[in-house]
């Protein structure tokens, strides 16, 4: 049973695209057949983050408009062979997408893949609406700051009213992915606490990804962080989030800034061993 999952946020710059790439790669690494669809027509980024920018021939708009077959536009990842990418068009804008066209593409992808991940553009306009329209579940990417939280709340309201599932009166699953969480700033009280965000948004938490240079580095070299540096803290957070999406029950630890001394590290390791 394939799942269509939209990765959305309302606000820009919170980490939707790196999260789509990292979650998609993490799911694919567990053996699931995954495709990530870039819905940010006109401002495509996913191909860069995935390191596939030099392999793009056809894109989502070509497929929606019937100029290319789906198989021609899909790009198979070179590192994980169960991972594919459907890039957006950089030269067009969101008006090039139609509801019927998107539905047709999503239906076709559903047959081929276990997971169809729709990387939504920022905003609440047509592009974002179409990215969520046919989804079964959503990952709402939020930073622990008031503006991001309020925009996420707006998006959650739309997921509950503007998706096909919601319109049919079905339950729409929503998960919160808290990204760019800085333990140091949280300790100084400069950031919203995890509990505060959860209290405001009132949706289940999928994971907390710490703010890390690793995410930036991974994007710069065009590799999802879960592949680039699998042992880094953000990579582990994404991997665990992916396992939770697959139904595993794992506790979610809030990242801490506590710097361990030599003795602490020693004991820490001993405890694990």
């Amino acid at each position: 049973m394939s799942k269509v999952m939209v990765v959305t946020s309302g606000k820009g710059g919170v980490g939707k695209t790196p999260s789509s790439a990292a979650l998609g790669a993490a799911l694919a690494q567990t053996g699931q057949n995954v495709v990530i669809v870039d819905f940010d027509v006109g401002l495509r980024n996913l191909d860069l983050v995935m390191g596939a920018e030099r392999r793009v021939v056809y894109d989502l708009v070509n497929v929606v408009q019937g100029d290319a077959k789906l198989a021609q536009a899909l790009i198979r990842d070179k590192r994980v062979d169960t991972l594919s990418l459907l890039p957006a068009s950089q030269t067009r804008d969101k008006d090039a997408l139609t509801e019927e066209g998107v539905k047709k593409v999503i239906d076709e992808l559903r047959e081929k893949f276990d997971w169809v991940i729709c990387d939504s553009p920022a905003g609440i306009e047509k592009g974002a609406m179409l990215a969520m329209r046919y989804a079964d579940l959503a990952v709402v990417v939020t930073n622990p700051e008031v503006s991001s939280v309020r925009d996420s709340d707006r998006i959650i309201g739309m997921l509950d009213s503007k998706t096909v599932r919601a319109e049919n009166g079905e339950k729409f699953e929503k998960h919160l992915l808290l990204t760019r969480y800085s333990p140091a700033r949280a300790a100084r009280g400069e950031m919203l606490k995890v509990e505060d965000v959860l209290e405001i948004l009132a949706i289940p938490l999928l994971g907390i990804v710490p703010e890390s240079e690793e995410v930036l580095n991974a994007s710069n070299v065009g590799c999802p962080v879960t592949l680039h540096n699998p042992v880094s803290a953000p990579a582990r957070a994404y991997m665990e989030a992916a396992r939770r999406l697959l139904g595993e029950k794992l506790d979610i630890a809030t990242p801490t800034a506590e710097r361990q001394g030599f003795i602490g590290r020693l004991f820490g390791r001993k405890a694990i061993a």
């Binding site: 609440i124 008031v146 309020r150 925009d151 709340d153 707006r154 959650i156 309201g157 739309m158 509950d160 209290e199 405001i200 009132a202």
Partner: peptide, 26 residues
Amino acid sequence: RPVRSGQSIIFEDGDVTVIGPVASGA
């Protein structure tokens, strides 16, 4: 259910009861 940011509940005929939060911007 929660009243989300950007949502507007308008009921001119009487009282409104909300079980859940009313978000900033709602």
